[in-house]
Design a protein around this nucleic acid. Sequence first.
DNA 1: CGTCTTATCGCTAATGATTCTCAATTGCAC
DNA 2: GTGCAATTGAGAATCATTAGCGATAAGACG
Lengths: 137, 137
Amino acid sequence: MNAPTPAPRMTRQRREILDALDTRDFRSAQSWHERLRAEGSTIGLATVYRGLQALADQGEVDAVVSESGETLYRRCEAGEEHHHHLRCRSCGKAVEIDVPEFEDFAHRIGDAHGYGDIRHTIELTGVCPECAAAGRG
Amino acid sequence: MNAPTPAPRMTRQRREILDALDTRDFRSAQSWHERLRAEGSTIGLATVYRGLQALADQGEVDAVVSESGETLYRRCEAGEEHHHHLRCRSCGKAVEIDVPEFEDFAHRIGDAHGYGDIRHTIELTGVCPECAAAGRG
DNA sequence: CGTCTTATCGCTAATGATTCTCAATTGCAC
DNA sequence: GTGCAATTGAGAATCATTAGCGATAAGACG
């Protein structure tokens, strides 16, 4: 009954994704793909999708769904427990924020209504100083 | 130069959508469409999409984007200012919740980082009592 | 009530994002 | 090295949503 760890191989493309992700911005899989190709990589789009998903499962990257329905990714900070973001709607730059007490709050609300297995999402979006200055957003 | 109010017509299908929406569940446009057809309506899918969007713009319905990227709709309560939900991941049933102080919190965080035009999303999801009892979820 | 204008319909084709298929590669254990 | 399953890349397939368009009918007017 012990699932032998699925054996993740460290391939060139896996490494490329990890490297590219080393920033502070939220971008779509397509956007990361473009960037990689622009840097000379020959990585395929499907591979980027697969890689990002795998990384998200491992907790190596954060994934959020934008208003328009696309999934955005970025590498997350070190240790990583549960956390939230303040993201720029124009350039994707994000900072992690702390919402103390919210975990508790969420569970209390859940209990109050009899809902179990509570999960929550908090997303703050805005326009960062740079984008505001540049007249974007 | 004055846009005369676009003249919204009350059609049979508009009425059908409004009637169908008279529940407490969050469902996708496709799901509402199915339901309408099941009840004998001959309304088209595109019409349901158009109708729901229009209603969302008017503030008559709430729209949220699920984890999987689909947009879910439900009629919202009367007056309607900004509010949040605790939604069942299995059946879509939702209750409105109050998150006092959060509006302020959001703006304070935004200011602290120099981000403007702050917008926020809070979604709590869980499994409602009925679904839990039925073993779904 | 009949006519006219045009918003709205419903169908179908088009988009856009994401996933799947599958033959060709290639980590990596032996 | 060898062998084989995990992984890749390109394109087809899928899904949700939107756009295009001829047909229909809401609502204003006489």
